[in-house]
Design a protein around this nucleic acid. Structure first.
Lengths: 343, 343
DNA sequence: CTGAAAGCGCTAACAC
DNA sequence: GTGTTAGCGCTTTCAG
């Protein structure tokens, strides 16, 4: 008893401990614990009993080294503080939970050099696959991904050259479609509010698609405003005030995400600015938060959970040995005009 | 060249490959790659050059097995969709990034049986420490944590019996203090709105502390309303409408989190209910979101980032071999009366 | 400063 | 159904 406790504290238990406690060979213990091969019900019970009694937790490090198999899927996202990514992760777990694969999350804070480091660390554990946000990576990161010899799925964005598979939406197209919807409603003097974009390629692409579609209609962005860091809701408020004071003739404001758009909406409501009469508003993402706002904000669903699920499905298939590679899944975001984008 | 590429694709590179490419023994290559021991500048260069050229990524599985050392810290939280936890995780990385430790995140979805599974999976990779949210765990989970032989830090909550170390705030006390502040402002008919609590022990403890402090003043909760799932902002709206219609004489509403409180606030503003004159409001957490609201909501800071940092510091110290164990860090949340809790 | 030998805890492959 | 043997890719230890 006492000696058991001491041993417990000093040294992690091994298969051998279970083997000795149960009087069954290590190999058979291993088989029981992994449900592999045929083991008689009697010995099976003996082993399970011993393992439970000792509180044995298998050492996956040794197991992985011996079997050359790791059930980990590396999932790399820029941030967890932007609700979008937790939603994608939820989609991923939803699917992987049905398999023997396990997601492991890494966060890059939107920094390529951090992405490189996180990727390196994760790859050094030899995961069965990688799901990584975005198509833009440093050369070193791309090289690592290419030579890893495991399925890679880049997610969120489909505008660019994938390394292997890709699941997402076209942000250029999302920007274009929003521009078309806005113009169709008769708005002409249009402003853009968003993050400083070197960081955020998807926001940049939406902006590019947006301006491009406007150009086709002979319209130029009337004014723009960018922010960095801080509370998005508050920034949305402040930027809206700034831009409307600077360009009082603006008829429409397109925000690069829903949170700042919500801030803008609250600003307008507070200041009795008629929405969408005096000024129309639209955001991007379709975050759940919007449902509680006083006025339904126009937005575009980014298919976050579905992106996660689909990426996980691809990984699960390929990592289980199915042939494949280079799949491209382009989801179509649906536009929601809400009550802030119609005249 | 061609054969390099083929090999690359078929089999992950090993130390031996680098050794052969550089003409240096495996052992010395290993030393160079880990910056251990003295190696001459010349051979060091040769090795690094070869490793880079090949694109060698070390196999941590083998390394961990051989060295019996793993630089992973398991971090287990109930959810990533509740902004609170990403903020804690950010605090954790902030500190661990300065060390050689790496956080690995697991999510339980508030389910004890999932916690058990996640914990088991993570422990089987033999991490150097565990940071886990809450003090309530299944017997099996507690047993695993106790016998893991590594530092354990339970976070967020200090009301209960920790397994090893604990960093957090007292939610009972948080509830008590909010009750006292409310009563002090002269409010008497007080309602509570929150999550269905079997899931959320911390919300329950706040509620207990809250009612207990009110009882001391001879006050009983006037009405209450609970929700489950869905958009918190919207739920806040709906519950506020429900409770105010049912109990029109309510003078104050205490919400178990800021998101539903914000929904309540927006509901009141929309319906020209004077806040805090007609009815006062308070939430819990001090989420960044609040800064963008039209009226500053009363809340209490839960010290999220600091909890993460402190937990990480404890793990880093202990996992680096320093003696210790059983530390208890109780942070003190500061109450912010905002503009919704004063008459 | 560098190398050779042994072994981390487990599982694949094969014998019995 | 069960046991034995070898070895996964690295690091520890010890010898030079």
């Amino acid at each position: 008893m006492a000696s058991d406790d001491l041993e417990n504290a000093s040294r992690p238990l091994t298969l051998r401990d279970v083997s000795e406690a149960s009087g069954v060979s290590e190999m058979t213990v291993s088989r029981v614990l992994r449900n592999r091969g045929d083991v008689s019900a009697a010995t099976r019970e003996k082993v399970l009993e011993a393992a439970r009694a000792l509180g044995y937790v298998p050492n996956k490090i040794a197991g992985a080294l011996a079997s050359q198999r790791v059930n980990l899927v590396a999932v790399i996202v820029p941030s967890l503080q932007n609700l979008v990514f937790p939603e994608v992760l939820a989609g991923i777990s939803e699917v992987l939970d049905q398999t023997h694969f396990q997601p492991v999350y890494g966060v890059t804070n939107y920094k390529p050099e951090r992405e490189e480091k996180v990727l390196y660390e994760m790859l050094s554990w030899r995961p069965s696959g990688v799901i990584i946000a975005g198509l833009e990576h440093s050369d070193a990161s791309r090289a690592m991904l290419k030579s890893a010899g495991i399925p890679i799925v880049e997610i969120m964005d489909t505008d660019g050259e994938p390394i292997d598979s890709v699941v997402g939406i076209s942000h250029r197209r999302a920007g274009r479609e929003m521009a078309q919807a806005i113009v169709k409603q008769g708005y002409r003097k249009i402003g853009f509010l968003g993050t400083k974009m070197p960081l955020d390629h998807r926001a940049r692409k939406r902006f590019e698609g947006f301006t491009q579609a406007l150009a086709k209609e002979g319209i130029e962005i009337h004014d723009r405003e960018f922010y960095e860091g801080g509370s998005a809701l508050l920034k949305g408020r402040e930027m809206t005030e700034t831009i409307l004071k600077r360009s009082p003739d603006l008829e429409f404001l397109y925000y690069s995400n829903d949170m700042i758009a919500a801030g803008g909406l609250l600003y307008c409501l507070d200041n009795d600015i008629d929405v969408p009469g005096r000024v129309g508003l639209a955001g991007f993402n379709g975050v759940e938060l919007l449902e509680g706002l006083p006025v339904k904000l126009a937005t575009m669903d980014a298919c976050r959970a579905e992106i996660g699920r689909e990426a996980a499905r691809i990984i699960a298939r390929r990592a289980s040995g199915e042939e494949g590679g280079g799949e491209k899944v382009v989801l179509t975001p649906t536009i929601d005009l809400g009550a802030t984008l119609k005249r």
